[in-house]
Amino acid sequence: MDAQGRIKQLMEERDWTDYRLAKESNLSHSTVTNMFNRNNAPTLPTLEAVCKAFGITLAQFFTERNSPELTEEQRVLFAKWSTLKDEQKQALLALIDTMRS
């Protein structure tokens, strides 16, 4: 899958619009739309910003779907996780740590 296709896939999984991706990744809306409308391949800094917005690494971005399948519950959890701000993620991790002890 090409980079634009993978980005579209990740957007669909999260029900994000082009505008939402631009906002979450701190990219201009025109940068995001040009990736799709003009078929411009994203630059490495753009791709890094997109991955950060999705809450994934570049390695995860390029990993094929041959990895173990996630359950529907895990996919929902990861999709919601990616919408949290950094401080919210830290608070949730702290809560999980207290629940495990």
Rank of each mutant, 00 (worst) to 15 (best):
D2V: 06
D2S: 14
Q4A: 12
Q4C: 09
G5I: 02
K8N: 05
K8H: 03
Q9A: 14
L10Q: 11
L10Y: 10
L10M: 12
M11H: 05
M11A: 06
R14K: 10
W16R: 13
T17D: 03
T17W: 00
D18L: 04
D18V: 03
D18I: 02
Y19P: 02
K23Q: 13
E24K: 15
E24C: 13
E24I: 08
E24D: 13
E24H: 13
N26K: 10
N26T: 06
L27S: 04
S28H: 14
S28G: 15
S30G: 09
T31A: 14
T31F: 01
V32P: 09
V32Q: 07
T33V: 15
T33Y: 09
M35L: 15
F36A: 04
F36D: 06
N37Q: 15
N37G: 15
N39L: 06
N39G: 07
P42H: 10
T43S: 15
L44M: 08
L44W: 02
L44C: 00
T46E: 08
T46P: 01
L47D: 12
L47V: 11
L47P: 13
E48R: 11
E48T: 13
E48K: 12
A49H: 07
A49S: 15
A49M: 05
V50K: 03
V50P: 09
V50Y: 02
V50F: 04
C51Y: 05
C51M: 08
K52G: 12
A53G: 12
F54T: 14
G55E: 01
G55N: 04
L58F: 07
L58W: 08
L58I: 14
L58P: 08
A59M: 01
A59P: 00
A59V: 05
Q60A: 13
Q60G: 15
F62R: 10
F62N: 14
F62V: 14
E64A: 10
E64N: 12
R65A: 09
R65F: 03
N66T: 11
N66S: 09
S67Q: 09
S67E: 09
P68L: 03
L70E: 07
T71Q: 09
T71P: 14
T71K: 10
E72I: 02
E72Y: 00
E73S: 11
E73I: 11
L77W: 08
L77Q: 07
L77R: 06
F78C: 03
F78H: 03
A79V: 14
K80R: 14
K80G: 02
K80V: 04
W81A: 02
S82R: 03
S82C: 02
S82G: 15
T83F: 00
T83L: 06
L84E: 14
L84H: 13
K85W: 07
K85F: 06
D86P: 13
D86R: 11
D86Y: 06
E87H: 12
Q88H: 06
Q88Y: 00
Q88I: 03
K89D: 05
K89W: 01
Q90A: 13
A91T: 10
A91Q: 11
A91I: 05
L92Y: 11
L93I: 14
A94W: 04
L95N: 02
L95T: 07
L95C: 01
L95K: 02
I96Q: 08
I96K: 06
D97N: 10
D97C: 00
D97R: 11
D97A: 08
T98A: 09
M99G: 01
M99W: 05
M99Y: 08
R100G: 10
S101W: 01
S101L: 08
